[in-house]
Write a protein that binds this DNA or RNA. Structure first.
Length: 771
DNA sequence: GCTCAGGGCATTTTT
DNA sequence: TGCCCTGAGC
């Protein structure tokens, strides 16, 4: 017996020790799942299994990294390094690079992110002379993605009457053609999208039994985390790989399956038993994370689902506080009350800000809470929205890098051929692209073969500019050959003039772009140094392999410590916080109403979503909703989510709902009817009648002028923050240096471009936020 | 090739 | 409302 076995409970220990044969581990929220996986691997290693014979798949880099670190602690860093541990995508990208010859791809193939895919799809739609307004690239991409994840190739797609019927019914009968052309162009560009990494792996294993056999033999042990989130493509790969040794261990929780919209099949975990005869099931039912109240309340919701594996999760922690429910009149008030609760409990119970999370259904809901937090000077960090790697400046620089490694990469080429501007405009690009399509080749081939350019009827000046661009890329190619990733990218940033251009731009946006580029360079430097220390390849192509599958959630920065976390429920999965606020608990956001057009499966998933949300909390859960909410400029009247009713009273502290002064403000019956369009008025009880007057007047005049003019005064002036660039009707553009006072007497010190510095009372000033 | 106004449009998201 | 796309106009 190893000493770590004593840290495990009965069910956990059994799951760790049963190393041979198929095993299903049902791991409820907070039941020590990662611990089991870690020790299971450690145990295998101690039994003498070779690290390189263990394949362990996760969904996020973060999960993989965390597990790797834990195993390194138990089994030693050297051993941990040789484990095949990573995300589905990164592991299979690795395998595909090894086997690239077999499938006819270059080993340095580019991985297209969703933006690249979307942009290519748009190009394809246009080239097929279809209407982009009808064929929305996003929708088309998701249809193609669904197809790929179900192993439906363009040919199968074209020949499937059923699929074509669906396409017709959504008025996009030509998706099959788009899919075909998209696939062709990806191949020409030497590129794979995210779904391809799984699809091509499946095809590799299907068409080349010898290759499959090699990997089957290598991976004596296969482990999958979050098995309830696997799609069909992932499911099949796992099944094929585990077929020889049958030592497969999947870990998951059907109650936390919330990703059906992106192809996850809860059936995969539900059907494990029939898929793997001779399997053994282990249920981790003790929750170590949350209070009894939280666990019981969560269970009371989830038991109502029909499709699930029966289990009895429980907590032996304290009973804990009841779940607090806050009812607010408006969304603004909701923000105010939630932040109030944070500030109060933080002082009273000595919590840190990092102990709090505000979870919501959609990213758009974050704004109100951001505002409220800012007003009270509560530090916060927000997940979601624009990712670091999706920023224009980052994508631009990385596109140069991609061009350097794989010049066939059309999407990268299109981004940078005229950035920084070198006089190669849209017209020229269209000509080149047409030529490329006609000759079934890449733009790079066209522009490196000048006689063809002349065919494309370009004038001399343009041809010279193109030639110059080709020279630049070829130089980078040589640079990348001779230098490590950092030196290469640094040279690229300098020689393209990107660095210089951003350096001269002194606007706040320009500064932030410059900072981002610096941050990217720092990251690459870190990569180069690490790689050298570990004796791993340190070239640009190695860095690009990593970065294509990276997201910004993967790096936690020090400056983000001790801040309230704001994120969607979906992205909170796998995380835990002492105190969790689930906000926007309205019917339309957490739809629990069966009478709607929701399918029963969808309703069950909403329940699981709610379950995931509240089981993130260790100690306190607070649910909040607003009776009215502005949505797209209209006032929506909302009902609280039915989940609030499904919760037994004994779990609830409803003091936040019974505040009589709030009740008195409830809308009168005739106001409660949902209206098609409600005139926008300042609605919250938090504003003085005086302020309301100002706002009403202001908003009327706003409408009269233009809805683009974001002018703010009175209370809304709080939107104006130090550092913002604003436009004043009389003084022109300026930067806000300082903000003081409270509404309606907010004073702003603004430094204008004209050189003068003014102190403005925002009540009287008309400022427009720039950008 | 850039800027700006107007139209259309709004889940959840990892890789 | 606010974002993104597009077409007009310079």
């Amino acid at each position: 017996m190893f000493d770590y076995l004593q840290e495990l409970n009965e069910a956990q220990r059994e799951a760790v020790l049963r190393t041979e044969g198929p095993a299903l581990v049902i791991a409820g929220a907070g039941s020590g799942k990662t611990r089991v996986l870690t020790y299971r691997i450690a145990n295998l290693l101690k039994q003498g299994a070779k690290p390189s014979s263990i394949l362990s798949l996760t969904f996020t880099n973060k999960a993989a990294k965390e597990m790797k670190e834990r195993i390194a602690k138990v089994a030693g860093e050297q051993t941990a390094r040789y484990l095949w541990m990573g995300t589905f995508h990164s592991i299979f990208a690795r395998i595909l690079r090894y086997e690239s010859e077999t499938i006819g791809y270059p080993s340095n193939f580019t991985i297209y992110d969703s933006a690249d895919s979307k942009s290519l799809i748009k190009t394809v739609i246009k080239s097929l002379e279809l209407d982009v307004k009808i064929y929305k690239p996003g929708t088309v991409l998701s249809r193609i993605s669904m197809a790929k994840n179900n192993l439906i190739t363009p040919n199968i797609y074209t020949n499937s009457a059923e699929i074509r019927k669906v396409d017709k019914s959504i008025r996009m009968p030509a998706i099959a053609e788009i899919y075909k052309e998209y696939t062709k162009r990806c191949f020409l560009s030497g590129a794979m999208d995210f779904d391809d990494l799984l699809l091509k792996t499946n095809m590799l294993f299907r068409d080349h039994p010898d290759v499959l056999q090699r990997y089957q033999e290598r991976f004596a042990y296969v482990m999958v985390d979050e098995y309830q989130d696997t799609n069909y493509s992932q499911y099949l790969i796992v099944k094929k790989l585990a077929a020889a040794h049958k030592n497969i261990c999947v870990v998951g929780d059907d109650a936390q399956s919330i990703y059906s919209f992106r192809g996850a099949r809860i059936e995969n975990i539900l059907n494990f038993k029939s898929d793997y005869p001779g399997h053994k099931t282990f249920k981790l039912e003790q929750n170590y994370r949350s209070t009894q109240t939280i666990v019981n309340a969560a269970n009371s919701i989830i038991v109502q689902n029909k499709k699930q594996i029966p289990k009895n999760t429980f907590s032996e922690n304290d009973l804990g506080n009841p779940i607090k429910v806050i009812s607010a009149i408006t969304d603004n008030e909701e923000g105010f009350l939630v932040v109030q609760e944070i500030v109060q409990t933080q002082l009273r119970d000595h919590y840190k800000f990092e102990d709090y999370a505000i979870l919501y259904r959609t990213n758009a809901q974050s704004r109100i809470f951001e505002e409220s937090l800012r007003k009270r000077n509560v530090p916060y960090k927000i997940y979601g929205g624009l990712s670091f790697y999706a920023r224009k400046e980052i994508k631009d620089l990385l596109s140069y890098c991609r061009m350097t490694i794989n010049p066939a990469d059309n999407e990268a080429l299109k981004r940078v051929i005229n950035y920084p501007a070198r006089g190669i405009g849209a017209t020229t690009l269209t000509k080149l692209e047409t030529a490329a399509v006609n000759q079934e080749t890449t733009i790079w081939k066209i522009i490196t073969d000048l006689p063809t350019i002349n065919h494309a009827s370009l004038n001399k000046g343009t041809a010279a500019k193109i030639l110059n661009f080709v020279g630049i890329i070829q130089r980078f190619h040589k640079l990348a050959d001779e230098n490590d990733a950092f030196d290469t990218v640094k040279a690229i940033a300098e020689q393209t003039g990107i660095l210089k251009e951003l350096y001269t731009d002194k606007s706040p946006e320009g500064l932030s772009r410059h900072d981002n580029i610096q941050e990217l360079l720092n990251g690459i430097q870190e990569f180069s140094i690490n790689a050298k220390e570990l004796g791993e390849p340190e070239k640009l192509e190695n860095y690009l392999e990593d970065v294509a599958l990276l997201t910004d959630q993967d790096n936690d920065k020090d400056e983000d410590k001790n801040k309230v976390t704001l994120m969607t429920v979906h992205s909170a999965k796998g995380l835990e916080f002492k105190n969790v606020f689930v906000v926007g608990m309205e019917e339309n956001l957490f739809p629990s109403n069966q009478s709607g057009d929701k399918k029963p499966e969808a309703l069950e998933e909403e329940r699981r979503l709610f379950y995931v949300a509240i089981t993130r909390a260790e100690q306190n859960v607070c649910l909040s909703f607003a009776n009215q909410r502005y949505k797209w400029g209209n006032l929506d009247f909302c009902n609280p989510s039915r989940f609030l009713e499904e919760l037994d009273e004994k779990y609830i502290d409803s003091s936040g709902m019974q505040n009589s002064s709030r009740k008195a403000q409830t809308l009168s019956p005739n106001e409660q009817k949902p209206q098609g369009f409600a005139s926008r008025k300042a609605p919250t009880s938090l504003k003085s009648p005086q302020t309301q007057n100002i706002l009403n007047k202001k908003l009327v005049s706003l409408k009269e002028t233009s809805r683009r003019q974001n002018t703010f005064e009175g209370d809304d002036a709080s939107k104006i923050q130090a550092g913002m660039v604003v436009e004043h009707q009389r003084f022109g553009q300026g930067k806000v240096l300082q903000i003081e006072g409270t509404a309606p007497n907010i004073k702003a010190t603004v430094f204008f471009k004209s050189g003068q510095q003014k102190q403005l009372l925002l009540k009287y000033a008309k400022l427009k936020i720039k950008g």
